[in-house]
Design a protein around this nucleic acid. Structure first.
Lengths: 243, 243
DNA sequence: TGCCACAAGATTGGATCCAATAACAAGACC
DNA sequence: GGTCTTGTTATTGGATCCAATCTTGTGGCA
């Protein structure tokens, strides 16, 4: 995965705000910017050598991807999720991603399958946490890559992005059996994909996500009460009523 | 539903960009701004009496809600959805909204139930298309209003917003049986909600959405090939690979 | 001591001006 | 005649400055 700020200058990154969004996206997903971190426009502008305008735009772009949240007159930060939030995100994933996968299924080429095989092989032959996170994401996204619906793909990616930090926090808790279980699940999914069997795809993918959710939410210590990062501040009350 | 631009000036609309976003949101959902319409920053700034900066921000806000889409150096427009897009949005709804409803179920008060009863009564005693669209949305959103998860609620609302225009276009095709069917479905959902029965809630809600999808996508004439509105322009190729 | 008013600093929001890019049209060259 | 090039115009993107808002610290007062 090439870092966004190293792409072809004539790509969509020729627009400064998208370039900045790419850098911040990488930093958030890599864990350099943790939940609760406030993203000051001044600071970012200085650090990235631009004015605050493209930084503002970038923060909006990231907000639309679920990677930041912003409060009027108060700024933007990396969202802090409660254990309930993460639980719900995973429940959403359990329902949505099987759809993404079945929509993708008939469009996957043999090249895709070969690539999946390679990725899974590598997953089984390494043990670095960050490497696993990258490969795992790559594995699933490759199974989804045939999905012809851009909105469905975007939503899927958004759900992954939003929970990335907690997935990482969970992974550092070593568990001797986990690798074996994950690999078994991946192999079953890969086999169902190879057979183009939508029912088994849904079954094993939903199971994979569900089991991860159950394990993840069994560790409440991964979720700080709320902002311990910087600035104690009353969060705006939740807009409950949908207007 | 009070129009956004008439809210308390000390509300979140005290920020100009959100005020503008509110106005445009209403205009898009009301059908005044149709799919394919380009949203020129200059024009909007002049019409709404502001500079282009808050307009830009507003367009980003709307983009994060799925109500507009923007292309670098080319501007923003109301998205034009193909019949496949709408089909997929509805499939997403079939999976997600039953979850929203079951999450909401245990938090719904008797007041909510009384309100649902009133809304459904009114739905059955009127025949105006726009009034129906408002009431129908109100009915479903009220059933969801107990959902404690803000992201899930936001995603649900987003899916509704994105397909609003096509729902309206469908409604103007008169069908003598439709009202009866919709009312029967709503009554079953309402009953299941009253009984706090998550299984029946899921069943009847999923059926309701699915039947609507099937009927809607049986009318390909509702979906123009692509932009017939203004400006023929090559759309940027879809970013297929998810990086 | 506890609490409210008020002022100073920090931070975001908005307006204006300028630069960069894209769509469009006219003309040169083959 | 067709295609490539080259200005022109419309439109978006970015920089700088100023205004509005929020946070925080200080002091008065009961």
């Amino acid at each position: 995965m090439s870092p966004a700020h190293a792409r072809d200058p004539r790509g969509s990154d020729s627009v400064r705000s998208q370039h900045i969004a790419g850098i911040l996206r990488d930093e958030i997903l890599a864990g350099d910017l943790k939940p609760g971190t406030w993203l000051r426009q001044d600071e970012l502008a200085a650090r990235l050598g631009a004015s605050r305008i493209p930084v503002r735009e970038a923060l909006r772009i990231l907000e639309s991807e679920g990677l930041t949240e912003s409060f009027p007159n108060r700024g933007a930060r990396v969202p802090v999720l409660s254990i309930e939030d993460v639980n719900t995100y995973y429940r959403m994933r359990e329902r949505l991603e099987p759809l993404t996968l079945t929509e993708s299924l008939s469009h996957l080429s043999d090249d895709h399958l070969a690539r999946l095989e390679r990725i899974q092989d590598e997953i089984e032959n390494q043990s670095d946490v960050n490497r696993f996170l990258l490969l795992d994401r790559d594995f699933h996204m490759t199974t989804y890559s045939g999905c012809p619906s851009a909105p469905l793909l975007a939503m899927t990616e958004r759900l992954w992005n939003s929970t990335q930090h907690y997935r990482r926090a969970f992974m550092v808790l070593k568990d001797p059996d986990r690798a074996m279980i994950v690999n078994a699940e991946h192999r079953l999914i890969l086999d169902a994909v190879r057979r183009r069997d939508p029912e088994d795809c849904e079954r094993y993918l939903a199971g994979h996500i569900r089991r991860t959710r159950v394990e993840l939410t069994a560790h409440p210590e991964l979720f700080v009460a709320d902002e311990g990062a910087s600035g104690s501040l009353r969060l705006p009350e939740r807009t409950s009523g949908l207007r």
